[in-house]
Write a protein that binds this DNA or RNA. Structure first.
Lengths: 337, 337
DNA sequence: CTCCACAACTTACCCGGTTCAGTAAACACT
DNA sequence: AGTGTTTACTGAACCGGGTAAGTTGTGGAG
């Protein structure tokens, strides 16, 4: 089948290509009557502008890029990214931007992908996740002047917009809640230590524990996988002075931690309370259901997409906080025995 | 920053644009010495061909499309799709094709997206998941002559290539295994009944149960969500003649089913054996770990991507079976008490 | 020495939109 | 009536690659 072009429309409407272009883009330069006639013809023959031609003549590519830099085995089970993607999509589809995805292994590869995309003019902007300290991607994006939005700060990203949620506030609330229940030995199994938001959480965790006089606040670094989360939990629970509550940096590790506790014959929440960060259906469907730090991840993604589209439109955007995760108590937390 | 173009390379190399194009694409028409000089310059200035220009001049867009047609709440937790995406990516990245993603709500919307992508010349082909009976997408793809690969057959897709795994064989093996353990009352919680592979599984399940003389083989339709899976499980377990084993069509429902059993005071696997379809880390990290039907989903995706790229290259492709899921026994299956 | 074949290029047009400069007609204003 | 100004267009250049057709230059055969 042949794709209809504006030349086809122009011929049928008896006008020039230029007039068709003005009419379809809502530009001034054609009369209302002509515009309606042209739009009707476009509708009728099912016209869609060739995105390549459009991108080539200076306009935008109407696409944004997202790189995912976790190994496949983590990506497949981590609900966070799919939630994020759904959120992006809702916003992007509304403005008919496409989302281009690439799975990468390292930040260096990610930089390569950004350079390639930029050179290919394939995308108008990128969404950057998992901000690190002195992130190598930031200077590259600035150099290329590629519109971007960073998720996972707050951090130093210069003029690049950020969307973040108040992790410090959330963890503070959680520790206060556990202490109110009577817990004194609270541990934490964290995500990848290189990520900025992990560091933010760890700092806030240490601060609030110190403020409340908890001397044994311990953070065990992990990597978001269930296996590692389970191992970290086992290590925490074999000590003589085992914690009575553990906070996990994602839901997958929390579920794994729950399984380890059950396997070791500990009652949850009687012997051990568990809190998961990032609520997902996963938390509700295990037994007992997990107390979790909930936030609307899709909305978080939608927010980021809106900021990115604004940046692409040339609007100066600033750092935006997208809302704090709030504690959703379920069956996995209780006063210690 | 200005993007380098072939004109820049041509100027620096002292040749014409055409020569550069021939050199970079490995076409005859330039001497080996000139080619190497041109390639070196391209390398040096970090040249990437503008994908829009390339797509416009008749060549391919070097991108393929994937639509995901499940609600966000299912997508976020279902490990299958992320595994599939990782698999695609591995293959696509190797040939530097981009993956364009769109989340849709209905098959009709999906068709709209295909039409738009085709009109925009944004993609060279699409990957179709969740094949249905009399799928509305198939005739559209044939009409548009858009290269495609279908995942989730086997079904009637005319000339469009299919990649599928032998679900009937897998479920037969599973039922035989459970019967060998001594189970006689085996139930199944299925995925969306409209999907062709769900129907394939149901038919095979009924057939093998009949062949083995199991009269109470019951399939309860569900929708892949944990909530629905849990509800279906509860309905199965409140009867007087409750099943001693349940097979779930995905891991999420299986985990939910496990939680329901635990909540109802049933021991797994003592009172109830559980089998999950599609192994994911999720199955190993609950307690007890779930016996699952494993297949390499990423490889499944990679396979599909290879077929699609072949179809785009104009090679005639046929239906391919991508390997059967095999039973991985873990702690959730045992002889009934 | 002439002619031909072929390699190694160059030239020019194509793809399908966007956009700017130009133009003719309609209209307003003095 | 004559002079701007505005409206509604047209025509052509342009984006950056791909490629068919044309042009050189070189070497070998006769």
């Amino acid at each position: 089948m042949k794709r209809p072009t504006i030349a086809d429309i122009a011929r049928r409407a008896g006008v020039s290509k230029g007039a068709v272009s003005y009419a379809l883009n809502g530009q001034p330069g054609v009369s209302e009557a002509t515009r309606q006639r042209i739009v009707a013809i476009a509708q009728e023959i099912g016209f869609n502008p060739n995105s390549a031609a459009r991108a080539l003549s200076g306009a935008s590519a109407r696409a944004v890029g997202l790189t995912l830099s976790r190994p496949a085995r983590i990506l497949s089970i981590e609900p966070f990214f799919m939630g994020l993607i759904s959120g992006f999509e809702a916003e992007l589809a509304a403005r008919s931007y496409a989302l281009t995805l690439q799975v990468v292994a390292t930040p260096e590869q990610e930089v390569e992908v950004y350079r390639r995309w930029w050179g290919e003019r394939r995308i108008d902007g990128v969404i950057v996740t998992d901000l690190r300290e002195n992130d190598v991607r930031i200077p590259v994006l600035q150099q290329l002047q590629l519109p971007a939005v960073v998720i996972g700060g707050p951090g130093d990203t210069g003029k690049i917009a950020q969307v973040w949620s108040d992790d410090a506030g959330a963890i503070t609330e959680t520790v206060r809640y556990l202490v109110a229940l009577g817990h004194r030995r609270i541990a934490r199994v964290s995500g990848l230590p290189g990520l900025l938001h992990t560091q933010t959480r760890t700092r806030a965790f240490n601060d609030i524990c110190a403020a409340l006089g908890l001397t044994e606040a311990l953070t065990v670094p992990s990597d978001y996988t269930g296996e590692e989360g389970g191992r970290a939990t086992r290590r925490l629970l074999i000590g003589t002075e085992r914690p009575t509550a553990v906070i996990y940096d994602n839901d997958v590790m929390a579920v794994a931690g729950l399984a380890v506790a059950q396997e070791m014959g500990l009652a949850v929440p009687g012997d051990l309370s568990i809190v998961a960060w990032d609520d997902s259906p996963l938390c509700s469907l295990v037994h007992p259901p997990l107390t979790a730090l909930s936030r609307d991840i899709a909305e978080y993604g939608a927010h980021a997409a809106r900021e990115l589209l604004a940046a692409i439109d040339g609007k100066q955007v600033s750092n935006v906080e997208a809302g704090t995760a709030h504690l959703t108590p379920r069956g996995s937390t209780a006063p210690p025995r």
